[in-house]
């Protein structure tokens, strides 16, 4: 464990806590893409299959449980909670995310560390996480004004993988045999997808103005 990865995990946890706060405090999920949340739930479920077979550390196990439980709770809430589901922007959240599922799965069948069930699903979860934010970013562009908590949520979500890139650079310097090409290249793509969001987020922060994404 190194500081970059720890900060990355904490940033990821903060983004989830912000989303839970928004949904719990405002009883609303306006501006949040259910499709992105469903993709994240699938990312965690397919990545943490080793939850009960490989014990790495208490921290690792606890964080995996938190990520799985929170992502499922958010999806459940957005689908079933009477107040929350009414505020879901169904007509704006129209990204065809099934293509993302299919593309990630096909890529995982081609590119993986080992052709084994758990490894192919692990690679699938890595590729899927890289593109899972797309429905959310498209929804933000369509909904125009972005409320504060949603903006913070997406910002921390993008920042976490950026910190992981520093973690991979650090681990490479510590041990040149350390290569995680699949995670690293996907992480770069994932962070790059946030580039324009980060730009408009920075502009809104500099001008102390509301976050506006161009349509």
């Amino acid at each position: 464990m190194n500081i970059f990865r720890f900060l990355g995990d904490m940033t990821h946890l903060i983004s989830i806590l912000i989303l839970l706060l928004k949904i719990y405090a405002t009883k609303s999920c306006s501006g949040i893409s259910l499709k992105t949340q469903e993709l994240y739930a699938l990312v965690f479920l397919t990545r943490y299959l080793d939850l009960f077979t490989d014990f790495i550390s208490v921290y690792n196990t606890v964080m995996k449980l938190v990520f799985i439980a929170s992502s499922l709770a958010i999806v459940w809430c957005m689908r079933n909670h009477p107040l929350v589901r009414r505020s879901y922007d169904k007509q704006l959240d129209t990204f065809r995310h099934y293509f993302l599922l299919l593309a990630s799965f096909l890529l995982a069948l081609l590119l993986h560390e080992k052709f084994a069930f758990q490894e192919v699903l692990w690679a699938f979860s890595i590729y899927l996480e890289a593109v899972a934010i797309l429905p959310q970013l498209v929804l933000l562009q369509r909904s125009g004004n972005v409320d504060n908590l949603t903006g913070q949520y997406v910002f921390f979500l993008g920042a976490y993988r950026a910190l992981y890139i520093f973690n991979w650079i650090y681990r490479y310097f510590i041990d040149p045999h350390f290569t995680r090409w699949i995670a690293c290249v996907s992480g770069l793509v994932q962070t790059a997808l946030y580039a324009d969001f980060f730009y408009y987020y920075f502009i809104s922060w500099k001008n102390n103005a509301k976050l506006q994404l161009p349509a």
Binding site: D9, H12, I56, N60, K64, W122, Y164
Partner: peptide, 10 residues
């Protein structure tokens, strides 16, 4: 160090 494809990261 965990072997290569041990996924010790979240």
């Amino acid at each position: 160090l965990p072997e290569e494809n041990d996924h010790d990261e979240l």
